[in-house]
Design a binder for these strands. Structure first.
Lengths: 192, 192, 192, 192
DNA sequence: AATGAATGAGTTTTCATTCAT
DNA sequence: TATGAATGAAAACTCATTCAT
């Protein structure tokens, strides 16, 4: 009888690392067990299946990140300040937990084509922020969803560039430039 | 002697469709053979392996698209005109061959973490365009690679939004807005 | 319509070469067609199946060699002279058609554990020669079959040694030494 | 946890039996699994591949037999005594483990055209014994490798004869006759 | 809670043979 | 006679999951 909590933690870390290194479907239970230093069967003491592990890893962290984004906005007033807070939060998260961040990007595009559009969804939070800004007249109106996509692109594509070595870490150093680019792109009045 | 070229074409079309519908690693030879109406063994008369098929499908089309981007720029003068041409070409490609476009996006992120940075690479073409504009003083300088990532994000994220149903087709309708957003984001003088 | 006889000949030569190089079961129709410069289907114009080809190649040549052994003995009188003739004939055959010789050795041990013990069988010819010599009192009697096995070993094992590079070609240079060894081993009166 | 060692032993025994009965390349994983009473996948928990199994089965036993030959010679003085010991050891091995002996003969000719010529190789041991005897003047000199081939032939060909039913078991009953034949064939002074 | 051998359905790939041209 | 694309059964191998310990 070993330290159950420690084992689960080790599974988490190892799984994330393998998932981003080799891809989610390319990571086998055997790979995971070997890398984590546990027996293959031990995984099933903690998760009902490999899919369960993936899903739990994704959804809990995706939700937690959504909450961080919501919290980051909470004490900001006005669109520009909120946008800045959100972009800064993306960058902080990437720098603090790059493997986890990459995993969330990976799974979102590969494994889960469509995630519930609820409050606990970072993408949805960005969409709501932009929709409110358009309604409030802080930025010009665009076709529904376009503004949010533009902002997400300005944030996520540089994140990919860091992953692929086209940009140097840390991500946070680019936060002001990205925020400025976003405000300009959207035609915000706050863009100096 | 049966029609080998026709079979190969059918394999192409079916593979692309399945890859974007189910994901690349989730598509089995059996799936492909069944959907294409061929025997499993027939695939191996045209490709050495499933991986070969994926790679050939990716690289030939990725290269072809890079050539289209290069051609689209060729008769344009000045950064703004070239950027407009490239963005329009992305949109046209997406509208003309959405399945192929999605496949290229998919594989680029999943299967091929790093693609050679040569002339036949669409991402590289965008990087070069932005680097030249910075050197020519047409846009302010940023850390190397950042400007290109911003532009790519402004184009590709709306493409994902179309795929996920957050934006309505056709993609081309957004080309002017995306171009304007990019010029503004970059601080181009051509941005009215 | 090409030269049918020429094609068949090319199939023979190529098949023998591949069989001894890679082993019989390891040689595929595709290998053969490629190496012979014919289409895969063409094989079936000349043979009902791959097994047919192997069998025909083996049996016709095995029989032909048996006939050569019989002919070589025909004008010799006495055991020693006949043994000498047979050993010389083995060596001549090996030197003239090494690939064919190796193929016959190969198939005999691998593919066909038991070949009919009839007059057209080289092994059987050696057995009969030795049985007659024992009956005629030209050599001492041994358990049935032992003398023939000793002689065959003295001939075939050096043949393998040539194949594996432990002995230098030509095989015929060793014929006198092998004959002398055989006569001595058997206790023949003709052994000086 | 089930009994891994027992399973591996069962795989060994079953594989050897099937290999000699049907031939090595003719034995499939399915055959083996069925005959051994295990699932097909179980093989791969013990061996990386079918080829691995064949190679491990061959090399470990080939080496072990070489060690037995070396041990058999160790307390013998003079060429004749050593040759006798070696031949007796071949016969004892054949009688004790006929399936294993046949497997080693089979694989040596079929699967492994060339085995490393080191100390752990039975063929090499015979070659060294003969070379020493020639150098010591205990037997007349012959072209390099010829004497050893003659001796190997005198031993192995009768072994094949037993396999093919041309000679009756046990092999050991022929050991004196084979030894005498070898000494006579080589022109040893110890040959009465 | 942990182990790791065993399972068996599923995967990719091979290949002798057939068939339309 | 020749071609080579197509077939489909069978091959080797993989892998999430189960089970006895």
């Amino acid at each position: 009888m070993r330290d159950g909590a420690g084992t689960k933690q080790k599974i988490h870390e190892t799984a994330l690392r393998l998932f981003v290194d080799k891809g989610v479907p390319q990571t086998t239970v055997r790979d995971l067990a070997k890398a984590a230093g546990i027996a293959e069967g031990t995984l099933y003491r903690h998760y009902a299946s490999m899919n369960d592990l993936i899903w739990e890893l994704f959804s809990s962290n995706y939700t937690a990140f959504a909450h961080r984004l919501t919290a980051a906005q909470s004490d900001r007033e006005g669109f520009a300040a909120r946008l800045e807070a959100i972009i800064a939060e993306f960058c902080r998260f990437f720098d603090a937990e790059p493997v986890l961040f990459r995993f969330l990007m990976l799974v979102q595009h590969q494994t889960l084509p469509r995630v519930a559009n609820d409050d606990d969804n970072p993408v949805e939070i960005v969409h709501r922020l932009l929709a409110q800004a358009e309604q409030a007249g802080e930025i010009p109106s665009r076709p529904p969803g376009l503004a949010a996509s533009l902002v997400l692109g300005l944030v996520l594509q540089p994140a990919f560039a860091l992953v692929y070595g086209r940009l140097d870490a840390p991500f946070s150093q680019y936060a002001p430039a990205i925020t400025a680019a976003a405000l300009a792109a959207l035609g915000s009045a706050d863009h100096a």
